[in-house]
Amino acid sequence: MNIFRFAGDMTHLISVLVLLLKIYATKSCSGISLKTQELYALVFLARYLDLFTDFISVYNTVMKIVFIMSSLSIVWCMRMHPMVRRSYDKELDTFRHYFLIAGCLLGALLVHEKFTFQEIFWAFSLYLEAVAILPQLVLLQRSGNVDNLTGQYVFFLGAYRALYILNWIYRYFTEKHFGRWISCISGLVQTALYGDFFYYYFISWKNNAKLQLPA
């Protein structure tokens, strides 16, 4: 464990807590893409298949459970909770995310570390996480003004993977057998997709103005 990875995990945890706060405090999920939340639930379920078979550490197991439970509960809330589901921007959240799932599954079948069930789902989860934010970014552009908590949620979600890139650089230089090209390349693509969001987020923070993404 290094400081970059720990900071990345904490930033990821903060993004989840900010989203839970927004939904429970405002009893609303306006501006949140259900499709991105479903993709993230799939990412965690596909990546943490080894939850019960490989014990790494208490921290690792606890965080995996937190991420799985929180992503599933957010999806459940947005679909089933009587008050929250009413505020879902159904007509704006129209990204065809099934194509993302199919594309990543195909990609994982073609490019993986080893042709085993667990490795293929692991690669699938990394490719899917790289593009999972797309429906959310499209929704932000369509819904015009972005409320603070939603903006902070997306910001922390993007920042966590950027910190993981620093972690991979650190591990590359400090560990002999460190070659995780699938993680690194997926992580770079993922962080790049946040590029323009980060730019407009910084502008809004500098001008102390409302976050506005150009349509």
Binding site: R5, N60, E113, Y164, N167, H177, G179, S183
Partner: peptide, 10 residues
């Protein structure tokens, strides 16, 4: 030989 990917990251 290269270790199988250590899945120690989240």
């Amino acid at each position: 030989d290269q270790l199988a990917n250590p899945k120690d990251e989240l």
